[in-house]
Simulated scan of single mutants.
Amino acid sequence: MVGGVRFWTDLEAVLDLVKIVKVMVQDIEVDRPLVSQCLPLWDDLRNKVKDWCGRYDKDEAPLQEVIEKRFRKNYHPAWAAAFILDPLYLLRDTSGKPCR
């Protein structure tokens, strides 16, 4: 089993997915975004997982289901209002990201 190419490819895929999540967590810990700035982070995670699935030829549905489950657990409708009403939402830095 360990000698098979598929094992090592799957291991590389899992390590890459863990790296994606770790980098996002580190960025969140450093930036300490406001509540209104968390919704774009969820979208960014969804896009990164979609890219990851395409790169490693994996089924996207189970991962998106996990992300949506976590999102629904942490999401509150007031976040949408905070996102729209936050004046920082309207400002972008030179890279195109919302200002913090």
Rank of each mutant, 00 (worst) to 15 (best):
W42G: 07
K48R: 15
V49A: 05
L34P: 00
K48V: 02
D59L: 07
P62T: 00
K50G: 11
V35T: 07
L34M: 07
R55T: 03
S36L: 04
D43I: 00
D43R: 13
Q37K: 14
V35W: 13
N47D: 13
D44H: 12
L41H: 08
K48G: 06
V35Q: 07
L34F: 10
L41I: 03
V35F: 10
G54L: 10
W42L: 09
W42F: 09
A61Y: 15
S36P: 04
N47P: 02
V49S: 02
V35E: 12
L63R: 04
C53H: 07
C53S: 09
L45C: 13
P33S: 07
W52V: 03
K48C: 09
D59T: 00
E60Q: 11
S36R: 04
L39N: 02
P62R: 11
K48P: 02
D57E: 15
L34D: 10
R46G: 05
E60V: 00
P33W: 15
L45K: 06
V35C: 09
D44M: 13
A61T: 00
P62K: 12
L63H: 11
K58Y: 14
P40W: 05
P40Y: 11
L45P: 06
P33Q: 13
D44L: 14
G54Y: 09
R46D: 06
E60T: 00
P62W: 15
P62F: 12
Y56S: 00
V49Y: 01
D57R: 15
L34H: 08
D43N: 11
C53N: 04
D59H: 06
P62L: 13
Q37Y: 05
G54C: 10
D51V: 01
N47S: 13
W42S: 12
K50F: 05
V49M: 04
L63M: 14
P33F: 14
V49F: 04
R46M: 06
V35L: 13
E60H: 08
K50A: 13
L41W: 09
D43T: 00
S36V: 02
P40G: 08
K48L: 13
E60D: 02
D43C: 09
S36Y: 08
W52N: 01
D57W: 15
Y56P: 01
R46A: 11
C38L: 15
P40S: 09
V49P: 00
L39W: 05
D44I: 02
W42Q: 04
L39R: 05
P33D: 11
V49G: 01
K50V: 01
L45W: 07
N47T: 01
A61D: 05
R55E: 10
R55V: 01
D44W: 05
E60A: 06
S36G: 15
P33A: 08
K50L: 06
N47C: 08
W52S: 04
L41A: 05
K50C: 04
K50S: 14
P40A: 10
V35A: 10
S36W: 12
L63A: 04
K48A: 15
N47E: 13
D43A: 08
L41K: 14
D51Y: 10
A61M: 13
G54R: 13
P40R: 12
C38G: 02
W42H: 06
